[in-house]
């Protein structure tokens, strides 16, 4: 079997005095869509940020395409081909839609063109001159996803892309993720919305207290609903 695209081993992360991740283990193969599931505060977002290199301090091993990244700064990690879409979306108020979209520099050849991205999200094209933060929540989410497709990054880290959005927009984002998978993007998705995650992902890792405690393939989900409800229930 080929080497995984992303291989995380014994990952620990700290914010100041707080120890958030206690040895996270998981891996993603090229072309997969994988989710991190779990309740609030179990370390899903911190795991994404640790892969991207934007937590205070981290140890362990995060290998991307075989290269160790755990001691690299985030700008170097991005240049290897990893792109991050934060939970709060991070749309810049002082930039218009088009400037937001073209802000991240190309890091590898083979990214989507602006035209292709507008094809995926036609609303953005109509509002290309608007201030980024004047868009609706759903449009901002599409902009946040759209802008990391241009760069040629092949691993996308998406933090709760459906949070707070209307069902019809959630559906649209699901379609987009399936199209991105078909184009060969590898996606690591953090989700609270398990029903949404089940429609797009190949595999799921379940997190609790800063560790990965279980792993399910899409085929195993149907038979494991009770177990999942226990993991994710409040």
């Amino acid at each position: 079997m080929a080497e995984p695209l992303l291989q995380v081993h014994g990952l620990q992360a700290f914010y100041g005095e707080s120890h958030i991740l206690h040895g996270v283990e998981f891996e993603i193969r090229k072309g997969e869509v994988v989710t991190l599931l779990g309740r609030n505060g179990v370390g899903k977002t911190t795991t994404l940020k640790s892969v991207m290199g934007i937590v205070g301090h981290r140890t362990g091993s995060v290998k991307f395409e075989g290269q160790e990244t755990v001691s690299l700064p985030s700008n170097r990690i991005a240049r290897l081909g990893i792109a991050f879409c934060p939970e709060e979306r991070g749309i810049f108020a002082s930039l218009n839609v088009e400037e937001n979209l073209t802000l991240p520099p190309a890091v590898k050849p083979g990214g989507m063109t602006v035209g292709e991205i507008f094809g995926l999200f036609p609303n953005l094209q109509e509002r290309r001159r608007s201030q980024g933060t004047k868009l609706s929540g759903g449009e901002q989410q599409m902009l946040a996803i759209g802008r990391i497709l241009r760069t040629g990054a092949n691993l996308l880290l998406l933090d709760e892309p459906t949070e707070g959005l209307a069902p019809v927009i959630v559906q649209r984002i699901g379609e987009v993720l399936r199209q991105l998978k078909a184009r060969g993007f590898t996606i690591l998705l953090v989700e609270q919305n398990f029903r949404f995650a089940a429609t797009v992902a190949d595999r799921h890792y379940v997190m609790e207290d800063g560790r990965v405690i279980d792993h399910l393939t899409a085929a195993e989900v149907a038979g494991s609903i009770d177990k999942l409800n226990e993991y994710l229930g409040v």
């Binding site: 985030s74 700008n75 991005a78 240049r79 991050f84 934060p86 991240p104 890091v107």
Partner: peptide
């Protein structure tokens, strides 16, 4: 302008 708003994210884009 973007880095003035959110330097962490701009850096995570590879800048």
């Amino acid at each position: 302008r973007a880095a003035t708003e959110n330097p962490t994210l701009v850096r995570a884009f590879g800048i």
